[in-house]
Amino acid sequence: MFGINQTCAHRVQLSAHRVQLLPLLHTSRTDSMLSTNVRTLRNTRNTQTRPATVARLYSSYKHNLKVPQVPTWEPVREDQLPSSPQVPADLVDKLERLALVDFRTKEGLACLERAIRFADQLHVVDTSGVEPMDSVLEHRQLLLRGDTVTEGDCAEKLLQLSNTTVEEYFVAPPGNIPLPRREERASMLKHS
């Protein structure tokens, strides 16, 4: 999963080999981590088992001073969130096309819904009177570089990273590989 494999032949890996994509797994991990936290917090309110749970969650990491030892946030109650998401089939279709990721399995859809649910918490945040920002680097200036050649001339190194090459070219399949048709996908969902 490095270099050209991941980038230039991105599509090949993702759609031809039907690899489940990392970002979603990643989302689901954050998601489950956070829901763990929320659950943990909820638990602590009622019982007194919080320290043990938190300690277990971060136990494999060295404690970082920037990370508070106990959660400092308020849990968001389910009833504060908008009603549970229903993702229509057409939208799943579109998302799959845009991301070139197949997730039309029961597990994948559940994961998507959890991710949306997770993001829904943002609706609760009161942002009135707060200027929207794109980046924490907004007030930094971009420093520019002089126009002198210092890179390149490493075709051999780069080509080594690719599965297939011809002479000094990378090789990709012609055009974009079409995604499976809707009927095919429906059956994929059924058999998942």
């Binding site: 230039c8 050649v149 890179e151 390149g152 490493c154 075709a155 780069l158 990273l161």
Partner: peptide, 20 residues
């Protein structure tokens, strides 16, 4: 900082960034 050129050997004017 890789060179801009019109008819160079393929992939010779590519930096790591250009190859993402």
């Amino acid at each position: 900082a890789s060179k801009v050129g019109f008819s160079a050997p393929p992939n010779s004017l590519v930096s790591f960034f250009d190859a993402s």
